[in-house]
Design a protein around this nucleic acid. Structure first.
Lengths: 147, 147, 147, 147
DNA sequence: TTTT
DNA sequence: TTTT
């Protein structure tokens, strides 16, 4: 790899995630989250707000967690990378920029069994034991999705 | 400047912020936030959790917002930089690493007037108008704190 | 503001920046930077590379620095936020996602007078004096561009 | 996990990395990198610089890459997490805060065989194929270090 | 302890 | 459109 491509977002889901099971067995979730910024209009002095919508794509384990736990209006932390796809429509090439998430923390407390705190999920979890400079670390969290 | 020194945290306050007014009129807030990581112990198979405490320092406007709105247990997003200070105690030089925040978003909904959503604050707010490639970009970066 | 919208990139410029002076006196620079990722093709076992292009927008002081110092092929660190704009062409609404930079560090050493190390520039510079818990914190955030 | 604990640094190594092989077969590298910030002294008007040193810890594959390729003076991008350890010395408990890196990009071009561009390494590499919404993604980069 |  |  060459370079760094990182996005960090905290925002709310505009709708429930759309989750699909691909033919090859992969699971993918799509949803949008909004971030907004307020500022004072220079000429009128009014306080205004600009909302930005971000298209999130999650794969495999993260997609399944999104499907189970994320709902419209929930706040999430998403870490991922930018990816722009092109596609044809009516003979016109269009471009969509998405954030492919590899790390997610739910910031809206989930009520019910065990609910409460935020919960982070990663597409490549790694044990913190390796941070502890002692012996016997490491959970090589295998990835047992069917592909 | 040379290089990049950036920290991004989402965690909960261990206690209420301590806020002090310095002789020169500056306001500074100190508090700690916890992040934790869970992993499976390799030998016992048990799920374990490691908690990390981060010392946060906020200045001026951010310190005042912390004083007003942040309480023990609240979840916050903090963006800042690492800074290690040294100090003497009992003839021994000790070091403390802190995160000097320059951006903060409260993630625990505040009930009461206007409460509800998260709210972001920056030590150097800038209008998003400049992002809009139209006329009259805006600089409202005035800083009217008493120092 | 509500939420967090942050992008961090390290990549190379595909071309020299395009810099324009707007009627209102603002300066804006546009350029693209590439990040790439290598991976092993699952079926063929070949090592492949995917390149992602990011559209960068810089305003005012950062635009002027880009104009002076950034050239095709140079490596830069960019910190900013995502912003999607829509525009019409041939009766079709199109969308472009850009990164509006608020912090930049040049990573390609500049030879010649004073050249050498990386240099960071921010759209809202702030003195580190405030990090030093001593007397007289500093606000030198004046913004003397002509708008 | 609960929360987010992320550090992003671009700086130069003060010395060559120290690399050790632990009894359990793990490899760990330690080195410091400097970031600096310049500011104008408020009273004297002089331009000053503050340097911050960050203690980096890398494990396994990243440690081996550091050993092979990183040298004093090199510039690197490091992504990781904060971790504070305590230890005893002369009956006094001391604390050290380190950055445990999980992603690294070398920003100093390496001359010699194959040298030149920046190169990124991750502690948990993942194929970008999964980003491409086609069939047959995924390289489950196994982790074959001896522990 | 880096670098300009 | 960069770079190796």
């Amino acid at each position: 790899m060459s370079g760094v491509n990182k996005v960090i977002l905290v925002g709310r889901l505009g709708k429930d995630p759309e989750v699909r099971n691909l033919d090859n067995g992969a699971v993918v979730a799509n949803f949008s989250i909004a971030t907004s910024e307020s500022y004072k209009d220079r000429t009128t002095g009014e306080k205004k707000e600009v909302t930005e919508w971000h298209n999130i794509v999650l794969w495999r384990g993260l997609a399944e967690i999104a499907q189970k736990y994320l709902r419209k209006g929930d706040m999430v932390f998403i870490e991922g990378k930018l990816r722009t796809r092109s596609w044809e429509k009516d003979g016109v090439t269009r471009y969509t920029t998405e954030i492919v998430g590899d790390n997610m923390t739910m910031l809206t407390p989930k009520t019910g069994a065990g609910g409460g705190a935020s919960q982070e999920y990663s597409s490549a979890e790694r044990s913190p034991a390796e941070s502890m400079r002692t012996n016997a670390p490491v959970d090589n969290s295998t990835d047992d999705l069917p592909f």
